[in-house]
Amino acid sequence: MKDYIEERVMELARYILETNATVRAAAKKFRVSKSTVHKDITERLLEINPGLAHEVKTVLDNNKAERHIRGGLATQQKYKGNMH
């Protein structure tokens, strides 16, 4: 694995852990695709640092579990004030 990829993987992992960022938020911050973030975290990080990979996976699993709540809140904000 190239050094710059390994460096990006570690930076992504730290960012997700520190901020509880979603895959989408991390992708936007690092200017890469969501697919790249997902591959970096699920495959490459597992190779580099399995313990850290497990911690990051826990954050991402939690974000995924809460996704429907965030979507509902976004919809609520969108229509707030337009109902009456």
Rank of each mutant, 00 (worst) to 15 (best):
M1R: 07
M1F: 07
M1D: 03
K2R: 13
D3L: 06
Y4C: 07
Y4R: 15
Y4A: 10
Y4S: 13
I5F: 11
E7K: 15
E7T: 02
R8V: 00
M10L: 15
M10T: 10
M10P: 00
E11W: 08
L12C: 12
L12A: 13
L12T: 06
A13V: 14
A13T: 09
A13C: 11
R14T: 12
R14E: 11
Y15W: 12
L17K: 11
L17E: 09
E18V: 07
T19C: 03
N20W: 08
A21S: 14
T22M: 08
V23H: 04
A25E: 14
A25R: 05
A26M: 03
A27T: 02
A27H: 01
A27M: 03
A27K: 02
K28E: 13
K29C: 02
R31P: 00
R31A: 04
R31S: 07
R31V: 02
R31I: 02
R31H: 04
V32F: 06
V32N: 07
V32S: 07
K34V: 04
K34C: 08
S35G: 13
S35K: 03
S35D: 04
T36Y: 11
T36E: 11
V37W: 04
V37L: 10
V37C: 09
H38Y: 09
H38V: 01
H38W: 09
K39E: 07
D40N: 08
D40P: 01
I41M: 14
T42P: 00
T42R: 03
R44W: 01
L46W: 05
I48E: 05
N49Q: 03
N49I: 00
P50R: 06
A53R: 09
A53C: 04
A53G: 05
H54G: 01
H54C: 02
E55A: 09
E55M: 09
E55Y: 06
V56A: 08
V56N: 05
V56C: 08
K57R: 14
V59H: 00
V59S: 01
V59E: 00
V59Y: 02
N62D: 11
N63H: 07
K64R: 15
E66R: 11
R67Q: 13
R67P: 03
H68A: 14
H68K: 15
I69S: 05
R70E: 14
G71D: 12
G71I: 15
L73A: 13
L73G: 10
L73S: 12
L73E: 15
L73Y: 13
A74N: 10
A74F: 01
Q76T: 13
Q76K: 15
Q76A: 15
Q76G: 10
K78F: 13
K78I: 09
K78P: 06
Y79A: 08
Y79D: 07
K80W: 09
G81N: 09
G81T: 09
N82V: 11
N82I: 10
N82T: 10
M83G: 06
M83L: 15
H84M: 04
H84I: 06
